[in-house]
């Protein structure tokens, strides 16, 4: 297990190194002065430029420049935003939790809806239930997310008026910013209207979370279905039937656990996809997250913002990836416990 952890951390380290190399090289590839691209100070006076040159060591070799950039990253200094001339780090700290909240809730939603549906489809293989679930999954997968978001707003917030169409929380509630994750902040606050605020925040997240979750849920349906079908074909299921267990016992005791293991491996991969969808959805629903901010900085040619947003989002996706790897190892005895005699 220790070797496993060291391996993952090693992978994390080198991937981060490559990622910073990429963002560092972006400052040279973007039009304009690399120094301005890195620091984001577009209106700097000549003296300030001299100071920046010293800080980023841009008169020295490329390796020194890279290490200077790394040390700035390590201090949490991502430069100024070219568009708003504010510290990017503080903007990201304000915005990233909203994205984490939205994408994690959407992931949970996709898993809790998709995986059981996939299992139901596999158990009723080639029957009506299977066909219905599969065609719904096909439909959900092929619907474009921006269209789905707009239609959802049109139907559920404009025509039916069930859910609000934009934002994270109604402006009437004043919630102190502690962790940035809205639900935790609401629960931590001592406002009298805590529970009303909680209900309002839940109403706000329903539509965007459902829209984000649609495509991953359909992928989970298909993943769960195929892995359950593969498990049901195996010898140990046949042996369990010969043992005299009922179908229910076989499914719940043996089949579900084994097929879940196969699905967990794919969650990390699907998460990158989900975050991309979440970025578009944030724009549609005016969700104050980092995805919307990143797309806006692309529009405004905020090169520093693009660099830092890229770095932060990739790191987030990669951390989730590694966490799912650990969950997989914790659940799977084959990855966790070594064979006797092989050690």
């Amino acid at each position: 297990m220790l070797v496993f952890i060291i391996r993952r951390l090693n992978l994390f380290f080198f991937t981060m190194l490559l990622l910073t190399l990429l963002t560092f090289s972006l400052s040279f590839l973007f039009p304009g002065d690399p120094l301005v691209n890195l620091s984001g100070q577009i209106n700097a006076t000549p003296q300030q430029l001299e100071q920046l040159k010293l800080a980023y060591k841009s008169d020295q070799g490329i390796m020194q420049q890279y290490f200077a950039y790394l040390s700035h990253l390590a201090e949490g200094d991502l430069g100024l935003s070219m568009a708003s001339q504010t510290q990017i780090t503080s903007e990201i700290i304000n915005l990233l939790p909203a994205t984490i909240e939205l994408s994690l809730i959407a992931l949970m939603l996709a898993m809790f809806v998709g995986i059981p549906l996939g299992f139901i489809a596999a158990v009723n293989h080639r029957k009506t239930a299977d066909n219905i679930i599969l065609s719904v999954a096909m439909l959900g997968y092929s619907v474009p997310v921006f269209w789905l978001g707009l239609v959802a707003i049109l139907v559920f917030s404009i025509q039916l008026g069930w859910f609000p169409s934009a934002g994270q929380l109604s402006l009437v509630y004043e919630i102190e910013h502690v962790t940035g994750i809205q639900f935790i902040d609401i629960l931590l606050s001592d406002s009298v209207y805590k529970w009303q605020a909680f209900r309002d925040a839940s109403a706000h997240i329903v539509l965007p979370a459902c829209v984000v979750a649609t495509a991953p849920a359909t992928i989970f349906i298909r993943l769960a279905r195929s892995s359950m079908l593969a498990v049901l074909e195996t010898h140990y299921i046949k042996a369990a039937r010969a043992k005299g267990l009922t179908f229910r016992q076989i499914i719940f005791r043996h089949a579900v656990r084994n097929s879940l293991l196969q699905i967990i491996r794919h969650i990390g991969l699907q998460f990158a996809n989900l975050v991309t969808i979440a970025m578009i959805t944030e724009v549609i629903f005016s969700w104050p997250g980092i995805g919307r901010w990143l797309i806006e900085s692309i529009y405004q040619r905020d090169y520093t913002g693009i660099q830092s947003g890229l770095l932060v989002l990739s790191t987030f996706i990669f951390i989730v990836h590694i966490v799912t790897d650990f969950i997989y190892a914790a659940l799977n005895p084959l990855a966790r416990e070594h064979n006797h005699g092989t050690s």
């Binding site: 195996t234 010898h235 140990y236 043996h254 656990r257 084994n258 659940l331 799977n332 005895p333 084959l334």
Partner: peptide, 8 residues
Amino acid sequence: MACLDPTT
């Protein structure tokens, strides 16, 4: 070996 559930 294939007839025993690997995760139980």
